[in-house]
């Protein structure tokens, strides 16, 4: 193990780099000063109280939840179709079609934002939360497909055939046999799509019209120095929330793989 020591030290330094900003979050959320800088001046929970009493924030959170829940359901549904189609069937043009569907993974978000804005305005549709949902579903779908693909891939085909032999139809087989087996994958895909939408800024700012989502609201607060500690308090809560959500997602993803008897290859991507 000696030869790995250099790498091990590097790995811990790298983790420190990755976690540096997140460690600062609670420190400033509980720091009794308007200006976010060192040295610290004392402990307070007033930023959390201020955050709680903020009505505009409440609206933004509500809008973000509407968008994120809709996106997680839509993107996961689209992901189920695509993952099932590409893992179960072979057909010409499959790679090309899937490539197109996965394209938002590498397309800069601002390009998606701009192209949807131009199209939506040209069609005379007004910008609301619904248009944000469209944009977010587009960028979240490739992630759901990546997760669901591994869930569908580890399915045993003979279970499905047994169901057909016993007289079940395609639809009832899907509902009774396949769905329960890929359920952990579906739950983890719902959670990932939810997190992606909840965090997205540029598409929401182009397609939101006058509707504010949480990231838009946070961005607007950065301009007011005295609001920054409130953002830190909010960020702390969001960070805790997303760690909890991800732990649940990871738990279901692993259970799904274990249930289908596959080998864990790790990671969401």
């Amino acid at each position: 193990m000696n030869k790995g020591r250099g790498f091990r030290v590097y790995a811990f330094v790298y983790l420190a780099f990755l976690y540096a900003p997140i460690v600062l979050l609670p420190i400033f959320a509980f720091n009794d000063a308007t200006i976010v800088s060192f040295p610290l001046t004392g402990f307070t929970t007033k930023w959390f109280v201020q955050m709680w009493n903020n009505a505009a924030l409440g609206d933004a959170v509500r809008n973000s939840l509407i968008v994120a829940v809709s996106v997680s359901i839509l993107a996961t549904t689209l992901g189920v179709f695509a993952a099932r189609a590409t893992t179960r069937y072979r057909f010409p043009g499959q790679a090309g079609l899937l490539g197109m569907i996965m394209l938002p993974l590498v397309l800069p978000d601002i390009i998606i934002a701009v192209s949807l804005l131009v199209t939506i305005l040209q069609l005379g549709i007004s910008l609301t939360l619904k248009t944000i949902i469209l944009g977010h579903t587009l960028i979240a779908t490739p992630f759901t497909i990546a997760i669901l693909n591994s869930a569908f891939q580890s399915l045993d085909r003979s279970l499905e055939e047994a169901a057909y032999d016993l007289g079940e139809t395609k639809a009832s087989t899907f509902r009774l046999i396949i769905m329960p087996l890929v359920m952990p994958g579906i739950i983890s895909s719902l959670l990932i799509a939810f997190s992606i939408s909840l965090d997205e800024y540029i598409i929401a700012s182009f397609l939101g019209g006058t509707d504010n989502t949480l990231p838009l609201y946070i961005f607007s607060l950065f301009r007011f120095a005295n609001q920054v500690p409130t953002v830190m308090a909010l960020g702390t809560i969001l960070a805790v929330l997303s760690v909890v959500l991800l732990t649940i997602a990871e738990y279901f993803r692993r259970r799904g793989i274990a249930r289908a008897g596959g080998k864990d290859t790790g990671g969401f991507l």
Binding site: D199, I218, V231, M232, G235, A239, V243, L246
Partner: peptide, 10 residues
């Protein structure tokens, strides 16, 4: 997975 905006701000 923690807020991108807040990470950048930090």
């Amino acid at each position: 997975w923690t807020s991108y905006l807040i990470r950048v701000f930090l």
